[in-house]
Amino acid sequence: MVDLTQIMDDEVFMAFASYATIVLSKMMLMSVTTAFYRLTRKVFANPEDCVTFGKGENAKKYLRTDDRVERVRRIKLSIYLASSI
């Protein structure tokens, strides 16, 4: 069985671990960034998220798209797709 110190000395494993850490950190940061943009601009994707800002017809005005929010969402999606390859 392979010893843990041998795995930690392997350059390929260390490169993989470093890249995985960077990608996961960036994905988590982009999730927080997307939530920040959605809350500050009051732009939501589904009616359940709008309930805190309004009821009934008043909540429907928050169901829209914003260019900045969509850009951040697409960046997050591209990071997720690139990490799954």
Rank of each mutant, 00 (worst) to 15 (best):
M28Q: 15
F53L: 12
V43Y: 07
S78D: 15
F13N: 13
S18V: 05
Y19C: 08
T40D: 03
K26I: 00
N46T: 13
R41D: 08
G54N: 02
L63W: 07
A35W: 01
I79P: 01
K42M: 08
R41Y: 12
A20V: 07
L24T: 11
R71P: 00
E57V: 04
T21D: 11
S25M: 10
T5R: 14
F53P: 04
T21N: 13
F53V: 02
Y19H: 07
E70P: 02
R71C: 06
Y80F: 10
I22L: 06
S25R: 06
L81I: 10
A20I: 03
A15T: 12
F16G: 05
Q6C: 03
K60V: 06
L4K: 11
L4V: 14
D10V: 05
E57H: 05
A20S: 15
V23M: 15
V23E: 06
K26W: 02
N58Q: 15
M1V: 10
R74Q: 12
L39G: 01
Y80A: 10
R41H: 09
I75M: 07
S18P: 00
R74W: 07
D3K: 12
K55N: 10
S18W: 07
R64Y: 03
F16W: 08
S31D: 01
V72T: 11
K42S: 06
V12E: 12
S78P: 00
R71Y: 05
V2H: 04
R64G: 00
E70C: 05
A20H: 08
N58W: 02
I7F: 02
D66R: 08
P47K: 13
Y62F: 15
K61Q: 14
A82F: 10
N46R: 12
E70R: 11
M14I: 02
D9I: 01
A59S: 15
T65E: 10
L81W: 08
Y62H: 05
L39W: 00
A59E: 07
L77V: 03
T34K: 08
R71M: 09
S78N: 13
R38W: 01
I79W: 14
K42A: 05
A59Y: 09
F44C: 00
F16S: 04
N58R: 14
K42V: 02
R64D: 01
R71L: 11
S25W: 05
A15R: 11
M28E: 14
A17V: 06
R73G: 04
S18N: 14
L39S: 08
R68Y: 12
F36E: 06
T33A: 08
D3Y: 08
V69E: 04
T33P: 00
K55M: 09
Y80K: 13
V12N: 05
D10N: 15
E57T: 05
L81N: 12
S78E: 14
K60A: 13
A17W: 08
K61S: 06
D67V: 11
M30F: 06
R73N: 06
M30H: 07
A59C: 09
A35M: 09
L29I: 03
E70K: 14
I7P: 01
V72F: 08
S25A: 10
E11H: 06
S31F: 00
